[in-house]
Write a protein that binds this DNA or RNA. Structure first.
Lengths: 199, 199
DNA sequence: ATTAGAAAAACCGACTAACAGTCTGTATGA
DNA sequence: TCATACAGACTGTTAGTCGGTTTTTCTAAT
């Protein structure tokens, strides 16, 4: 029951953080929901903050698993790249996550999520971009730094649901240019992101 | 003494937020420092959060005033643009601000600062970029969206003191490309930012 | 012009409720 | 018997409240 209990607590915490927000979820509420005592909670975790970190790690890990599938797929490099970037953002059926992250009481959660995403996403994207450079589709140096910027833009632009068609247009244009891809080669992003987020 | 008192309280709060961090500064500590009672504090402000908002507004307003001076200066457009962007970030003698913003206990403050900065900075930069387009130095559409991306990158990249030469190189390259400036026309950024932040 | 007195603005500090985290245990299984 | 797993009363700190007091400002009658 030990590993199970910890995981069970994390799942309860996750659900409550998403539905109520991190700041608005007290440890007392979590243990009431889990029907355990305070001492038990602090037997498994050092702090509420540690729970947040673990919850976010789980969230990102799931996104990474989905995103990873694009690497082996038999599709154009550009589509792999964009597939990964969009997969790293909360998907349609995780719309409540996007809403939660963007809530004013979840600033801390949001920040930790984005930081971790950039960290994990960079490793994935590096493979793709190197492949693209080898095939002559991309042309750029300082790959990791460019990926970081790419993920920063994606994070800040697309995780509030307040972006416009023009935002996507500029993001596509900038992505093409900063990777040295040919103009228009990533135009399909617009459909993907538009469909994924606004649909 | 009424307007003065409010301003005095904001200045005390500002100093304490910067030196101790927002989360680590309690209202009790602020009123002790100001030598007033709790009721007085809440006579002037609705919440601790409102104080944070007001403090940040003041901070950004000061940065905007400095940045605005570049508009009238007789220097190349590229230098105006970069001058403004770098002015919007905490300057050398405000290094403690940068440190505070990046502290783990100041996530909320940091986020509000960046959001407000993008809001205020966009208006300033728009003038410059239009001027650049008119003079044939820049060449791009969707100006406001590009500015937003530019400020997002600048914010996320440069306000922790953890960026490298390569980060600057990529930022310069991306900025040139996304505004349609000629290659190398903004190379001087490296010195500016490097000197400003790492010196 | 002076002043009583009413009204509004500025201020006080004890109080509450909610919270994260602690501590001293007890039960249970190897 | 020893470590793992759990319990729940307790503490200290916090943001925010509330009923009351002082100080200032305005009004009006002398």
């Amino acid at each position: 029951m030990s590993k199970n209990r910890k995981q069970e607590l994390l799942e309860i915490a996750y659900k409550m953080f998403i539905t109520k927000g991190y700041d608005n979820t007290s440890v007392d509420e979590i243990i009431k929901e889990a029907d355990i005592a305070k001492g038990t909670f602090y037997y498994y975790f050092d702090s509420k903050d540690e729970v947040l970190d673990l919850v976010i790690n789980d969230m990102i890990d799931k996104e990474i698993i989905v995103a990873s599938k694009y690497i082996e797929m038999q599709i154009p490099i550009e589509q792999k790249l964009i597939g990964i970037i969009t997969s790293l953002r909360p998907s349609i059926d995780e719309k409540n996550i996007a809403i939660a992250l963007n809530d004013d009481t979840n600033i801390k959660m949001h920040r930790k999520y984005n930081d971790k995403l950039i960290d994990s996403g960079t490793k994935l994207l590096k493979e793709i971009i190197l492949e693209g450079i080898n095939k002559g589709i991309f042309n750029c140096n300082n790959i990791e730094e460019r990926i970081k910027l790419l993920l920063i833009m994606s994070n800040e632009l697309f995780d509030n649901n307040n972006y416009s068609e023009k935002d996507i247009e500029v993001f596509v244009d900038t992505t093409e240019k900063m990777l040295g891809a040919s103009k228009g080669s990533m135009n399909f992003i617009a459909n993907l992101i538009g469909g994924k987020y606004n649909g």
